[in-house]
Structure formats: structure tokens, C-alpha cells
Amino acid sequence: MWTWAHKFGSPGYFYALAGKVNPWLTALYIALFATGLYLGLVVAPTDYQQGDSYRIIFVHVPSAWMSMFVYVVMAVFAAIGLIWRLKLTAVLAKASAPLGASFTFLALATGSIWGKPMWGTWWVWDARLTSELILLFLYLGFMALQAAMPDRQTAWRAGAILLLVGVVNIPIIHFSVDWWYTLHQPATITKLGAPSIHPSMLVPLLIMAVAFKVFYLSLLLSRARAEILHRERRTRWVQELARSGQL
């Protein structure tokens, strides 16, 4: 197990493996997106209350899920990186940050667009949107910290601690924002996510969620490969790749 982890963690091996896997992942997420969007936008019935505008959930909900998921993944990388000092974790976590921030931004943007027909305004301080906004700040803080430190290793270890502090705080922030929302907004706005969702809507939603995950994984591998090439640009294996024209 340990030797395997180190072999997998070696940049050259990871670069080659990721290069082999990635085309398959790309094909997979294209197929999943096509199916999910077809089922969601064409097959699923129109909502009797919200009309067609509800269909934005097929993008909004998966990106909101991803925004949380990516942060937790980064925190796991942080823990592994701090404990076992695997170099690869730094690459993966730093490659994830802009992706997670983009998913969060997408969740905010689609939430806001959805809000226009629902609430008649682009922005409402709704509990979920507010939490997403704070999450976006956490992503941006991590990225700002990485950018501010010239030494790469120090930057990553400091960032890893920040991620762990963040992941402890996120449940508290969520709880406090929910609590704040119920305190200030007595049930005048009806709850959005219907408690029971019809299978014709649920199936495309789940397909889209899986599509988003594969999409993230594929982008992560591409970004990690680019970062590895940059970091290892002076090593022999990268220069040999360049000389043989395989880059």
C-alpha cells in the first residue's frame, strides 16, 4: 500500500496515468451531459407552478453540490499533504481551487437567474445563496493566500492549514446562516426545493450530478498535468518528453 502510494504519488507516473485516463473521462462526461440535458430540458414535464424556469435546477443544484464537494476534497488533500507530505496533494488541491470557485460562482449565478422569475429580483438574501457566497469567499481566500507566498512549499502548507480550519468552520457557518435566515424571514417565501420530487425530474438531476463530478475529475487531471509539467520542467523526464515531441 505504502509503496503503491509513493509510486502513484510520483509526478512522472501520475502524469502518464492521467494522460491515459483523461480521454475516457472526457467521452464519459460528454455522454452524461448530453443525456442529462436531454432528459432534463426536453423529456421532463413542465412544472405546474414555475413553468419552464425550474429547469435551471439541472445546472444550479449540481453546481451547488460540487461547490461543497470540491472544498471537502481539497481539505482531504490538505490533511494527506500535512500528514504524509505527498507532493502530489499540493498539485491536486491547488488545481481544484479555481474549479471549486467556478462551481460556486455558477451556483450563485444560476441561483440569481432563477430568482428573477421566482422572487422578481436578482438577489435575495436567501440562506442557501448566502452560504454559497461565503463559500466563494473561502475559495478566494485560499487562492489569495497561495498567490501571496513566493515559496511554493510554504504556500501549500499554510494553505492546507487554512483549508482544515475552513472545513471545520463550514458546518458552523451553514448552521448560523440558516438560523439567521429563519430569524429574519418568517415563512413568507415558500420553500423552494419541493420535499418530494417526481422521478422524471430526479433522474436527469442525478445524471447531471454525476456528469458534473466526472467533468470536475477530468478538468482536475488536465490542470494537474499542466502544473506538474511546469514544476518539473527542469527534470530529465519532462525534457525528454519535450525533445521527443510528445508535449
Binding site: G141, L145, G166, I173, V177, W180
Partner: peptide, 19 residues
Amino acid sequence: LLSLLVLPLCIPVLIFATA
């Protein structure tokens, strides 16, 4: 930078204290 990192984490304190 310090404010960027820490202010989001202080939000629960702000919420409960003002409440």
C-alpha cells in the same frame, strides 16, 4: 489578506452576537 481569510470565518459570531 488577513481580513480576506478570517472575516468569512467570523460570520457566525456576527450573526449570533447581533441576534
